[in-house]
Write a protein that binds this DNA or RNA. Structure first.
Lengths: 188, 188
DNA sequence: ATAAAGCTATCTACCACTAGATAGGTTAAA
DNA sequence: TTTAACCTATCTAGTGGTAGATAGCTTTAT
């Protein structure tokens, strides 16, 4: 119980996630993962029979971790401005500090070649984010649901687009510049 | 002269561009291209010795075609609002109507595994867009260069992020929703 | 005008390597 | 003694890339 029983499984997922973030779905291989974990590629297949299984597991873990850290947007004891700020800063940490795009943005680019289950998990993840942000904007700006959803889509687009620009140009400060409007209006 | 001498070269680039758009840098192979063009893979290598050469050629052609169709943003006889509208609609046609992300967004995701020349061409392309839009915003809103550049970055982020959202969720109307602010403020 | 030489675009046949995946054996803990 | 976790060894199918040949133009030299 205290001992981590699925240590190898977790290490495999860690390696897979890192490789996907760096090069997309096509850039992680069982051999690379095996080497990083310190076992043989056949043993990776023991834990995750197919590449799709492994990618699904990584995606699912990512969604769960992400969702678990989202506070309840309607919790009156929490400051909604701080929640939005936390959302922005969490995203920023991934793409600016680690110099790569987020897992979901990478997989979105590869969507045409993803196994169906992974593709579906990806869509579900975006819907989770959209729903959470919509609730937050309803509270932040006293908006009706549809207006709040439009704000959400504009905000999410800016966030993801900012990561594309940073990655493409190598210009890290483009992130803050893209987000400046949202920080100005809603944060602090 | 009138006869298209580089027919095969163009066909190869067409096939490569389509495959890159659909699945990224890793998803185009010499054999797939050869089959589509109707020759053997060795013959593709005759025209483009390495994969990087071919990707560079596709990228360069894309940049040239794109740049050629951009009007001079300071041409007094042209309406700047219409220019921005054209920019938006051109982007929309690629990502919404053809149900995929733009070539440059795809390659940005794969940047870590691109040959250096392709990666450099990609960065250059974004700089072309940024410079053109900055000039346009200076004229559109009578802004100083730095303010216009900030507008440009926010606008470009929204545009690229919108394509990510559309691709990820399959919800085509997210594009107009993400762009509604920009259309409202600057178009007509 | 003709023969020699070279060029262009393609072919067949291969190389070395990597991919995901599988069958069947080994080890070690419960 | 059973089971979980790992191994070795192998397979098939693909990858980018190369060598060498060939058919049909085009140029050049005599």
């Amino acid at each position: 119980m205290t001992v981590e029983k699925n240590d190898t499984k977790n290490k495999i997922q860690d390696a897979a996630e890192r490789l996907i973030i760096q090069g997309g779905y096509g850039a992680f291989s069982f051999r690379d993962i095996a080497e990083e974990v310190g076992i043989k590629s056949a043993s990776v297949h023991y834990h995750y029979p197919t590449k799709g299984d492994l990618a699904s597991a990584v995606m699912t873990r990512y969604i769960n971790e992400f969702s678990a850290q989202l506070p309840n947007p309607n919790d009156e004891s929490l400051d909604p401005n701080a929640m939005l700020e936390g959302f922005i800063n969490g995203f920023k940490a991934k793409i600016v500090d680690h110099q790569n795009m987020s897992l979901c943005t990478m997989l979105t680019a590869d969507k045409h070649i993803l196994p169906d289950e992974v593709s579906a998990a990806l869509t579900a993840f975006y819907n989770v984010k959209i729903e959470w942000l919509t609730l937050l904007f309803m509270r932040l700006a006293s908006l009706q649901e549809e207006q709040a959803k439009t704000q959400t889509i504009q905000f999410l687009a800016t966030l993801h687009g900012a990561s594309v620009l940073v990655q493409a140009t190598g210009n890290a400060d483009f992130f803050e510049r893209a987000l400046s409007y949202w920080r100005m209006v809603y944060v602090k």
